Lab assay of single mutants.
Amino acid sequence: GLMCLEHEDEKVNMYCVTDDQLICALCKLVGRHRDHQVAALSE
């Protein structure tokens, strides 16, 4: 899978609806997407 741009060791596994961007779990937990609307990726 694709790796996160901000956290190079994390794979992107969710999608930020607010930013129209693929993000990883760390982005959602501690990153700038924590208050955004996110959706899980169905692979």
Rank of each mutant, 00 (worst) to 15 (best):
K11E: 11
I23W: 03
G31D: 13
V12R: 11
L5H: 09
L29G: 14
E8K: 14
S42E: 13
E8N: 07
D20L: 03
V17T: 09
R34K: 15
C27S: 00
C27K: 03
V12T: 07
G31A: 05
L26G: 13
K28W: 07
Q37A: 10
Q21A: 10
R34P: 05
M3P: 04
L29M: 12
C16H: 05
L26D: 12
K11P: 05
N13W: 03
N13G: 09
D35S: 06
I23S: 03
E10I: 00
V17R: 14
M3F: 13
L26K: 14
L26P: 15
H7F: 00
C24M: 00
C16S: 07
K28A: 12
S42D: 14
Q21E: 09
H7K: 01
V30F: 03
L22H: 15
N13T: 09
R34Q: 12
C4P: 00
D35M: 04
E10P: 02
A39E: 10
V38A: 09
A25H: 14
V38W: 10
A39Y: 03
C16V: 01
R34S: 08
D20I: 02
L5D: 11
K11L: 06
H36C: 09
K11R: 10
C24F: 15
L29K: 14
A40G: 11
Q37V: 06
M14C: 13
Q21L: 07
R34C: 11
D35A: 04
E10R: 09
A39I: 08
L5M: 04
C16R: 02
K11Y: 06
V30W: 04
L26I: 02
T18H: 05
C24G: 00
D19P: 01
I23P: 14
V38I: 05
E6D: 07
I23Q: 08
G31V: 03
C24A: 00
A39K: 11
D9P: 08
E8S: 15
K11W: 04
E43A: 10
L29R: 14
E10S: 08
V12D: 15
H36P: 01
Q21H: 14
E8Y: 05
M14G: 11
A40N: 06
M3N: 10
Y15S: 09
M3K: 10
V38G: 07
D9M: 14
K28R: 13
T18I: 15
N13A: 07
K28T: 12
C4A: 01
Q21P: 02
A25L: 04
L29S: 15
C24N: 01
